[in-house]
Design a binder for these strands. Structure first.
Lengths: 217, 217, 217, 217
DNA sequence: GATGAATGAGCGTTCATTCAT
DNA sequence: AATGAATGAACGCTCATTCAT
């Protein structure tokens, strides 16, 4: 039925896998079901992927590719740190609407299932972001855009933590409930407010201690 | 081999369960293994807990009790918001050393396996913290301790996000790797630095604009 | 709690057992549940009965005692064969109302669960009835009450078959449904009709071939 | 060890299942054992049947199909009621030799294990027979072949009761023992006698009163 | 290659039975 | 003697993985 595993077919398989893994978790997702839903045989899955875990990791990588490109798009172009932060925050919000399942998968690997790969995965996933954030913050500090007494790495880390938590809060069931408990049932309908408050929070964190401050565009 | 299931034994079972769930995740953890490691028979487990999932939830609740009491201890007593924040940060660090597995379990429920319970669990777990944080921030704002243009709920949320991420960063494999990637291999050995930088980050976020500033665009 | 296993207590245990075995079958009935419902500990059950099967057999014997005494009551006193048959039919109907569960148990042993004991049980249960019926029929034949060309044993057998099937048809779920399918939804409300039709059926079977026949009282 | 599950294989599985269920009852029969004896893996069983109960019901239906076709064969073709009855009696005897296990299964469902399905099964199993018998008896009555004062439904019921009991008496351990107790150790070797006596019994029941008699009170 | 039927190890769960108290 | 907590063998069922076609 399937002549060649075209890139398109591969994409379909991965998307199906992501949906299933997001819906049921790594362990409860069923390879046979994924195959059926993808319109391929299990044999094909096992030809292209070592085993269930390997397939899971491929799905994960595929989804992270998208996530990363969203981040990178948002980071490209210049602007103050805060301007960039705003872009990122809005990108995270948009991305959660479009690719919620990717975030769920991302959260999944942070949980127990694949500790074995924690190190490798973290390397693959976090290094770029980490580096870029750190560099931007260092630059901003050099440019006097940001208070001078901070450790760029840790600030980058805290910053990413806020983005990460936001990401999950829009996509993962548990985090979404927590979001509503903290901020009210309707918080998911007011992206604008969330964005502006987070930016206020960040702006302060970045800027405090400067003499003249942070009137971003 | 017969023993009465004392409260102590119950505690041992739960601790064993937490360790296993933390090590292998809800699905891969093996009830028979947990029983054996606890020194009881599976029958006992099924006498005291409805089924695997019920046992998991009991382990989770048990671990959250500890986590919550740590938080509450740190919150008791007065002090400025920042003073309290410091206590919390240090409590999180201490707790991660002593009860890392509890954090792993907590992270696990945020991930795929227990979506079914997301709502209920979030209610049980997050409501207290959420309320307390929000109240403190509102009080601090009333007292002029904190900038006046913020939404206390969202600030409480961002604040908790930072603590949550820190918690996981000390305990969960993936988050720990990520922590090291962002902040260097040795970051886990310098709690002092992490605490002080996070407090700086928070202080700014709280305090900014108190005198004249914070007219964001 | 229980000082001595009085006859009364024993009766209660057996009744509870019968109810459970009737409700769930030999295998699905739960000894621990039976103990709890009887208000005794499992230990007591295992003191007085060898094991589950032994307990089942005791319940069975207990219930058959009642069944048998009903039959014997109905058989005592003289009368024509048909008069006796009428008593039996009505006794079966009455008994099904009062002791339906006994019949269910009786049916149960005829099914797979205890083939091991089929022979022993049949001996214990059927021999008296069989003998009495056969004797009555032989007497009746000798007395010219009944056609002369029959084999008393087989006639006794067919006669008991009809009673047995009737017994189950009033008490056992499956047989009751079958009864309704054959004779209409309301057949269980018209014992009189069933009795009189069965007696007609029997009367004919007994009497046919006599020169002057069977005008029973 | 891989084989395609041909229709033949399916038949083999069902036959094995019937044998196991007949030998040990629904609950004690072991699915893994059945699979092994059938020469297939448990997986196959669970591919073709929902679960143990579903498999049991399939075995049952399969066996009833045979039973029913035997009955129907015996009923096809005309003849007096008694001629038909004779065919049926002999068919029952023959069938018991060839498919004793089927009868055991049939008996099993009438007992405790499957009360849940009593209604549905009874409908599926008994309705045809019931209707046919009732119709034949009604026709026979109309034709003056049979006494006029009977209720065809109840007579059909009694008639089927006799056949049912005979069926079990040839196949099910308990009923077989009972048969011997009533009619002697060698009764199973003299089908001819049993048939002729039963026919006498039936003939009387049907025919009585045709000339002058049967004015019951 | 691609297929998907078949495999069977593995695990959750039950409950008859035991025996320390 | 009576208790009932504890035991653990046993079994139903799932699903990742294989391999004959």
């Amino acid at each position: 039925m399937l002549k060649k595993l075209s890139g398109e077919k591969l994409g379909e398989i991965l998307e199906t896998g992501i949906a299933e893994f997001a819906a049921h978790g790594l362990d409860r997702a069923n390879i046979n079901v994924i195959a059926k839903k993808s319109g391929v045989s299990v044999g094909v899955l096992y030809k292209y992927f070592e085993n269930k875990e390997g397939f899971f990791l491929s799905c994960l990588r595929y989804s992270l590719e998208v996530l990363r490109s969203v981040i990178e798009d948002a980071m490209s172009g210049g602007g103050t740190l805060l301007a960039r932060a705003e872009k990122l925050v809005r990108a995270v919000q948009r991305c959660a609407r479009e690719h919620g399942t990717y975030n769920v998968m991302y959260n999944e690997i942070t949980a127990g299932a694949s500790q074995k790969y924690a190190q490798v995965l973290a390397q693959q996933i976090e290094s770029i972001t980490s580096e870029v954030y750190t560099r931007f913050i260092a630059e901003a500090r050099a440019a006097g855009d940001i208070r001078g007494d901070i450790d760029p790495k840790l600030f980058a880390f805290f910053f990413d933590n806020l983005l990460l938590a936001l990401q999950f809060s829009y996509s993962c069931d548990y985090y979404r409930e927590r979001f509503k408990i903290f901020c009210g049932e309707d918080i998911l309908d007011d992206d604008e407010k969330v964005a502006s408050e987070l930016l206020k929070f960040l702006q302060s964190a970045f800027a405090l201690g400067q003499t003249e401050i942070s009137q971003e565009g």
